[in-house]
């Protein structure tokens, strides 16, 4: 397998452009901190929910290219969507990582580029981490400043 199959331009571009953003505080913000214990990818994710939509996403992300790209793409795909919609997207992304068919690949936007990671199973956790964090912060996350 060629390196370009995994580390595609889309993935590399997102990873390079990723900028950590100051974490949110105040009303309707939620925060979670997750890491991959085997490799050390670390993510602190905070979101603000307004009128039922994820209004702002901010994070401190430190880790590998796949994780960073996945984080940046997740932000773009999830922003301004409702919790229900994001839960569905997360489900679709997980299905894709488990090599299962998904109903609406278009909804995942650039996250489709990460499909290649299934060929490198040891790295699936890196791509999943931001999605897992988003799911947890919306559904079971620590409530911050509520």
């Amino acid at each position: 397998m060629d390196i370009n199959e995994i580390y595609q331009r889309t993935i590399m571009d997102y990873a390079v452009r990723l900028k950590n953003k100051p974490l949110l505080n105040g009303q309707d913000t939620y925060q979670i901190s997750l890491e991959n214990p085997t490799c050390g990818d670390k993510l602190i994710l905070s979101v603000q929910i307004k009128s039922g939509l994820v209004h702002v996403i901010a994070y401190q992300a430190d880790g590998c290219v796949i994780f960073k790209a996945a984080t940046a793409i997740m932000e773009k795909v999830c922003l301004k969507h409702s919790v229900t919609e994001i839960n569905h997207l997360e489900n679709q992304f997980s299905q894709m990582m488990m090599q299962q068919e998904i109903d609406n690949p278009k909804a995942l936007g650039d996250a489709i580029a990460l499909q290649a990671i299934v060929k490198l199973p040891v790295r699936i956790k890196c791509a999943m981490l931001p999605w897992k964090a988003m799911y947890q912060v919306l559904n079971e996350g620590e409530v911050d400043g509520r």
């Binding site: 995994i6 880790g63 490198l120 790295r123």
Partner: peptide, 14 residues
């Protein structure tokens, strides 16, 4: 500037 896991994967691919 390159995370250890990316280096290992790049080597794995070779």
């Amino acid at each position: 500037g390159v995370h250890a896991h990316d280096v290992a994967s790049a080597l794995d691919l070779r």
